[in-house]
Amino acid sequence: MKRLVPLLLIVTLALAGCQGWQSALDAHGPAAHTLANMFWIFVAVLGTVWFLTMAALLLALRRRRPVDADPLVTDPGTEKRMTMTISVAIGLTLVTVITFTGLSYAAQKVLYSHKDGALTLLVTGQQWWWEVTYEDEQPSRVFTTANEIHIPVGEPVLIKLEASDVIHSFWIPNLTGKMDAIPGRQNQIQIQADRPGLYRGQCAEFCGLQHAHMGIVVIADTREDFERWRDHQVSSAIAPNDPERQRGMEIFLSRPCIMCHQVRGTDAGGKVAPDLTHVGSRRTIGAGTLTTTRGNIAAWIVDPHGVKPGVNMPTIQLEPDEVQPLASYLEGLK
């Protein structure tokens, strides 16, 4: 009994791990449901096979055989039973394999069929963050953001996947399976969320030093909330009106920040690092590495390599009294 308690605890904890904002078994979309169902069918069937095999093995081990049995003497009855058993086993194996193949095929049909979605996104994997472009028929409504995707609930969203440097893999476990992002070609995958919520994704193809810190957050909202968010994201950054943030903006525009980052509505037009126009409205910075707070932004600017060693954000020359206005400016870019 005493041994059973820790065992039960471990099992409970392991099962609790299935719930959460980044779990393929906590399905919140049609594709993820298909995958989760497949997983449970495979676990059930293969688990049964395993238990049967183990039971047969134990039986065979425990059954005592006469010590002086002559292996050359065969009994026709036993031989017949053995042939039957093995034939049935082979037959069942064939049926299982064929059923599994059929199931996989059906699941792939579901996973790779694309419905016409109202929304198309272009997601580009980069070392080590995700660039997200919301496409639209009107060019003025196209905008770019990073590391955070907002989608309307219950609607299929088509995601075009590209990569700029090495192979990455886009994976939102709660919503769908993995899809590689490969330089020089475009892959497509569809996601759909059944319920409003927050789903975390992760690069699933080793892509270098900070592969582990290459997260993405998907936020599923109602259609109205989503439209409100999109209208806001399309707009340029609002110029700050308090002196501290104005100073922060001056610092931002006169430092190396502008070589890579873009803030729409200012002169900063770099295209190789995350768009910071509305960085303050995003939940995380550094591709899911830190939550967006003024302190974290300051830490990220002062010592990016302490937070995320090897990241392409350089350490720059800043005076101590310039950090606060700069962080405050960026935090205020809602």
């Binding site: 006169s254 430092r255 190396p256 502008i258 070589m259 350089p314 350490t315 720059i316 020359q317």
Partner: peptide, 8 residues
């Protein structure tokens, strides 16, 4: 100057 960090 001051646009690209020195090491870069």
């Amino acid at each position: 100057r001051r646009k690209i960090p020195d090491d870069q």
